[in-house]
Design a binder for these strands. Structure first.
Lengths: 361, 361
DNA sequence: TTGTAGGCGTTATCAA
DNA sequence: TTGATAACGCCTACAA
């Protein structure tokens, strides 16, 4: 049987060689070599033939021969989430620019699924991997450690592994939120985070919160920091708990985009109005933040840019232009909308909310 | 130079053959053939060796030989948009299940970019393509027509081409919206669509609107149907125009997820309250619809499911289980929230909004 | 500057 | 039931 089954036969390097009256080696050199390796006249002739025949090298043959596929594997926790789909669009844009194709997968924050995808990608001989790692157990770490292709992790580190990192400046993000609130006059500021679980990005935001409180001369009351378990209900519950304690906070910082709505729901259930009775700062910019009532003040992170930078770095490593390690940090900025205002005490004294509806972008 | 550069050499079919004391042909048969082609004893031995060595066939070599890559190309208008990222997650899920990998691209609704990606995908020898086609000029259509790999279009047809289609039932979607409003007592119902531009999905929604008006015995007043030009401002403007005419509608149907917010903005600019003074029905379910003020009544479309079905059909075609043509339609359903209510006249008579906050899901 | 030739890892034909 | 072997299309060391 003819290999290739019913598929149309594409033109090969041999067709070009025959048509141009040269050897296939010359064609290959013309295609891949630096300009000048083939004589000017030959090159001109080849250019014409390649154009006319529409020749494109067969990537499978090329991969087989060179061991490089020009494929990049991306493993994200959830491609349907706005944050990650934005990151992905950045990755795709950068890879396209550099001539790589992107294979995607959605691992749902499960180390096991992650591992399965890793296998698929390695089997496909991807040239590099972009990974937003789930919480890593030792077995997984061991597996990742033996990888022979470059990996760059997104958002978080994989502790103990020498991979490059492209992430947000999380300490800065938390600090921006806290400083904004402190400036407004808040003294008791709650902080809601997913269970830290040794994940670097969560640790950093927590540290940013604690450090900036300290810098402002405020004590950290442990009861103001809450860690939420996976799922929808616990975030709401923790927010309620936070608000039901004797001396309740006048503001809350949500430390993750996926917690913003839980915090807001908790505040609503507690019967408090935002921002009159409690200020709320969200994390990450979701497309609906400006549509909420009130529009949410939030720490905006450059997700698209993260994707671009990560892909660029990975391609550079693949092409030997760059060392694999090291970290790139992207700076978030604060978007002040209407969910934050001076705390009631001051608000009353100074005439209330009126001055706070300015939108800084 | 050794091919494969610094990459670790993976175990090949030859390693397995040597280790098991058989020929590579036997190994290949064991790997690919139907069970039973190799003797039971040999199979057992091979299973053990394959396991121990962790052998996985090199996809490049396989592709080179068979002409099949187990790669599927997906061209979407915008992977960062919630609708499309949800579709993509469905595609990815189904492909993963069937052992295919997904290459993504975001073409930004430009036929030119679409074409470039098409080239990239063909060069990569994808086994099939999933495409949400932009508005096609004849040249593009001609190019698509000559394709040798199966294509399934998403959401819209590419007129004149025999590709399979997986799309929503758009007529039904528009009908659900109109019937809901008619039931509430509305008689003048506006309809806002992007310029139809010969795109099948837009035409179908328009027809659904017109037909269901007719079925309800209502005349179609052309001034109630508005077509919006690309961009942000025109949708707002058209909504204003619609509302400023002498006998203004009591309800508006937005015919595209990307128009929902423009309609809402226009209504706001016109100084009308939703739903007291005007009812609004949106299209597609965006994650923020339930967070809007008021929460938006909307025609929800099964985006994830669309991706799953499209990928499944494409894989089936690739594997010869299925004919390439034909269409699959997915049924939307209406989610009634609080942006729709009986028109003022009736509302006053019957006690107003109170009864309408039931959420049907 | 160009050509010859070997081999990358598979699958599939043919013969045994 | 198995083995030997010829491609698949390309890149590159080596020779000319």
């Amino acid at each position: 049987m003819v290999p290739g089954g019913g598929r149309v036969m594409r033109t090969t390097i041999e067709d070009v060689a025959r048509e141009a009256g040269v050897s296939i080696a010359t064609v290959s050199r013309y295609i891949n070599g630096p300009p000048g390796v083939v004589a000017a006249g030959t090159a001109a002739k080849l250019r014409a033939v390649v154009d006319r025949l529409g020749y494109v090298p067969n990537p499978a043959a090329r991969t087989l021969r060179t061991g490089r596929s020009r494929l990049i594997g991306v493993i994200l926790s959830n491609i349907a989430h706005p944050y990650w789909s934005t990151v992905l669009s950045g990755v795709e844009e950068a890879c396209q620019r550099r001539g790589y194709s992107v294979i995607v997968s959605s691992a749902g924050d499960s180390a096991e699924v992650e591992n399965r995808y890793l296998g698929v990608f390695l089997d496909q001989r991807v040239d590099g991997i972009l990974l937003n790692p789930a919480n890593a157990d030792p077995a997984t770490v061991a597996r990742w450690a033996t990888l022979s292709c470059p990996v760059i992790t997104l958002d978080r580190t994989l502790p103990g592994l020498p991979f490059g990192l492209v992430a947000m400046d999380n300490e800065l993000g938390a600090r921006l939120a806290v400083e904004h609130l402190v400036e407004l006059g808040h003294r008791r500021i709650g902080f809601l985070s997913w269970h830290v679980a040794n994940l670097s990005n969560r640790l950093e935001r927590l540290r940013g919160y604690q450090d900036s409180l300290a810098a402002a001369g405020l004590a950290t009351d442990p009861s103001l920091t809450r860690f939420v378990a996976d799922g929808w209900s616990d975030g709401v519950q923790q927010t309620l708990d936070l608000l039901h304690q004797a001396e309740r906070p006048t503001a809350i910082v949500s430390a993750a985009s996926t917690l913003n709505l839980q915090v807001l729901a908790g505040v609503k259930q507690a019967g408090l109005r935002v921002p009159a009775e409690i200020s709320v700062v969200g994390y990450d910019e979701s497309p609906w933040d400006s549509l909420l009532d009130p529009p949410l003040t939030t720490v905006a992170t450059p997700a698209h840019q993260l994707g671009v930078r990560a892909a660029d770095r990975l391609c550079a490593v693949i092409e030997g232009e760059n060392e694999p390690g090291g970290e790139t940090r992207l700076r978030p900025h604060l978007i002040v909308r209407q969910s934050t205002t001076p705390p009631r005490l001051l608000a009353t004294a100074s005439g209330g909310r009126s001055g706070r509806s300015v939108s800084v972008r």
